[in-house]
Design a protein around this nucleic acid. Structure first.
Lengths: 331, 331
DNA sequence: CTGAAAGCGCTTACAG
DNA sequence: CTGAAAGCGCTTACAG
C-alpha cells in the first residue's frame, strides 16, 4: 500500500536525502526543488513513517498514560487534560488501565517501553515506588502523579494537596459542631501512605477530638462499596454524625446508605467528599466536596514530561496543585 | 541505554538470527542453545524493540481509538471495553479525543496512520462517511461504531439498536397515557441521520399521535444544555408531559430543569433517557432509560477489527447490539 | 539445528 | 544546494 520517500524522490527526480530535507524543513533546498518535492508528496499522498524515523532518532513522539480505571470520572477528566496537552505538544498517547493492580501496572509499563514511548505518565498503585524507580532508570522516564518519590532526574512528580484538602474538610465539619466524624478511607487506612487519611487524623487531633480507629474504614473507592461501608459504619456506630470520604464515589455511596438507613443528609449525617467530579453536583443532596482540578493535573503532567525529555539530566522539583472545599448541600 | 539483539547474540555466543528464533518461539533451536539465549536475555534485561520489528513486519500491534470525548461516561465505558479486549488480543491502544469535530477527527486519523497502527476504531461525527471511506482505502482499516456504511472490506461496522430503543421508550410513555411527548434530540434533529430521532417520530406516528416539530429540539448532548433546552421547551410548550432524551446526560439536565420549573418528575413531566450510564441510577429521581452495554460495544469493536486484520479481503456483516428499556423512577 | 546477507523506511554524518 | 553510504534493530528468504 504504502508510498515511501523513495517513491517521492523518484517522482520529483531528486535524491531521498532531499526529500527528507523538505519533509523535515531543514532548509538548504532551492525553492524550485522544494516545490517539486512538495508537489510529488501531495500527488502521491505520501506520509512519512514515524516508525522508520523512530528507529533512527530513538523518539516516537508518543507517551504512555497508565491509570487505575478510565471509567472512573476522576481518571477520565485527568486523561482528557493529558490528551489535550499531549496533542498540543505533538505527542500521541497510549492509554492503559491498570485496574489499580501492581502486576497489571508493571505489565503496562513494560509494554509501553517495548513500543518505545518517549515517556510515561502514571497514577501508580500504592507502595510500588521501588519498582517504578527501577523501571525509570532502566527504561523510560516517568511522571508520577500523587506519590512521594525522592529526587530523581528520570522521575517527575505532580502532587495534589491531599493533606490540606482533608484538613479543610475536617475544619469545616468541626466548625459545624460535629465531634464524631468517621472516614471512608479508600484502599488503605494507613496514614503513612494516604495523605488524605493523615490530614483527617491530624486535623481531628488538632481540634482535640479523639481519633477512633474503628470509625476509619477501608473500602474499594467506588459507589457500591461506599454504600456498603457506610451502612456498616453507621449501624455499628450510630453516634457518628459526619463522614469524610476518600473520594466522591464513596461519598455518593454514603448518601445512598444514609437514605436507606433513614438518616437525613446533612441533618442526621453530614457527608464531605473529595475530587469534585461532575457527579458531585448532580446527586441529591449535592455533594459538599474538596475541589481538585483534574484536567489541569493531566496538563501539568504532560508539561513536566516534556520538560524532562528536553533536559534529561536535570532533576526538577515536584509540582504542587492546590485544592479548595466547595460547600453544597451534603454538609 | 538500550540493549539489542546483537548484545544478546554476542553474550550467548550465537548469531542474531538464533536470538530472533528464540524470542519469537520459532522452534528449530536446540534446547541447550535456547537456554543459553534465554539466560543472556534475562541477564541483560533485553526487550525486543517493537519499532524495529514493525519496520519489517508492517505490523505494530497497536490500534487507535477515536472518540468524541473521553470525559463522557458513555465513551469512557466503551473505551474500557476496547482497552480490555485489546490487551487480551495483544494490542496496545492509542486514544484520541475528536471533540466531535470533523477536522479534529480526521487529524487524529492521519496521525494514527503515521504511527502505523494496525487498525482504528472510531465513533465518528455525523455525515463524515465519505472521507472515512477514502481514509480506510488509502491508509488503515476502520471499525465504525453506530454509523451506516456500505459493505466494504476495509470498514467494519457495529450498530446499536437506536431505532428500537427509541421505540421502546415511546411505547412505554404512550402506555403510561402520555400524548404530548417532546424530544431532546442531541446534535441534529434530522431523522435521516439520527436513528433515535427516527424511532421517536415513527413510533409516535404509529400510535396515531401527531409529531410536533417544535417539540423536537437540538442541543449539545451534555447536562448543561439538556437543562437549558428543557427549560425553553417546557416554558414555550407547557402542554408537553413527557420528554425522551437523546442520551442520559440530556435527561439529567431535563430533570434539573423540571425541578427548577417546579414540575415534579415523573408526575408533571416524565423523562426517559438513553444509554444507561452509571449516573442514570445515581440521580434523583433515578432515570428510566434505554440500557446499552457500552463495555460490550467496545469489546465487539476490537473483536471485529482483529477479524478484519486476519482476513483483509473479506467483507463482514455489521454486528448488531440490542438495547432494553430499564424502568426506574423518572417515568 | 545454525548463520550471512538483504532490506523495512527513514536520518545522520560526510563529501562535493 | 545536492547526493551516496552507513546504520537504527529487527525479520525474511536462502544456504548449509
Amino acid at each position: 500500500v504504502s508510498v515511501t520517500m523513495r517513491d517521492v524522490a523518484r517522482k520529483a527526480n531528486v535524491s531521498i536525502k532531499t526529500v527528507s530535507r523538505v519533509v523535515n524543513n531543514l532548509g538548504e533546498v532551492s525553492e524550485e526543488t522544494r516545490q517539486r518535492v512538495l508537489a510529488a508528496i501531495e500527488e502521491l499522498g505520501y506520509r512519512p513513517s514515524k516508525v522508520a524515523r523512530a528507529l533512527v532518532t530513538q523518539r516516537t513522539d508518543t507517551i504512555g498514560l497508565v491509570l487505575g480505571d478510565i471509567t472512573n470520572p476522576f481518571f477520565s477528566e485527568l486523561a482528557c487534560g493529558v490528551l489535550d496537552a499531549a496533542q498540543a505538544e505533538g505527542y500521541d498517547v497510549f492509554l492503559c488501565n491498570s485496574g489499580s493492580r501492581v502486576e497489571q501496572e508493571m505489565r503496562a509499563l513494560y509494554s509501553l517501553a517495548d513500543h518505545n514511548v518517549d515517556g510515561i505518565i502514571i497514577f501508580p498503585s500504592w507502595r510500588n515506588i521501588e519498582r517504578l524507580k527501577a523501571f525509570a532508570e532502566r527504561y523510560r522516564p516517568l511522571v508520577v502523579i500523587n506519590r512521594i518519590v525522592d529526587d530523581h532526574p528520570r522521575i517527575g512528580r505532580i502532587l495534589t494537596d491531599n493533606y490540606g484538602g482533608a484538613k479543610q474538610a475536617v475544619d469545616f465539619l468541626v466548625g459545624k459542631g460535629h465531634t464524631a466524624i468517621g472516614m471512608l478511607a479508600g484502599y488503605s487506612v494507613s496514614p503513612k501512605i494516604i495523605r488524605r487519611v493523615r490530614g483527617f487524623r491530624e486535623t481531628l487531633a488538632g481540634h482535640r477530638l479523639s481519633v477512633v480507629d474503628e470509625w476509619i474504614v477501608t473500602c474499594i473507592p467506588i459507589v457500591k462499596h461506599g454504600n456498603r461501608a457506610t451502612r456498616r459504619l453507621l449501624t455499628r456506630n450510630p453516634q457518628v454524625t459526619a463522614i469524610f470520604a476518600y473520594n466522591d464515589l464513596l461519598a455518593v455511596g454514603a448518601i445512598q446508605a444514609c437514605e436507606e438507613l433513614g438518616r437525613c443528609v446533612p441533618d442526621d449525617c453530614a457527608i464531605v467528599g473529595f475530587d469534585d467530579i461532575q457527579l458531585a453536583s448532580l446527586v441529591t443532596p449535592a455533594l459538599t466536596t474538596v475541589h481538585l482540578d483534574k484536567y489541569e493535573l493531566g496538563r501539568q503532567a504532560v508539561t513536566r514530561l516534556v520538560e524532562m525529555l528536553e533536559e534529561p539530566e536535570t532533576v526538577l522539583p515536584p509540582i504542587h496543585l492546590g485544592v479548595k472545599l466547595v460547600v453544597r448541600e451534603s454538609a
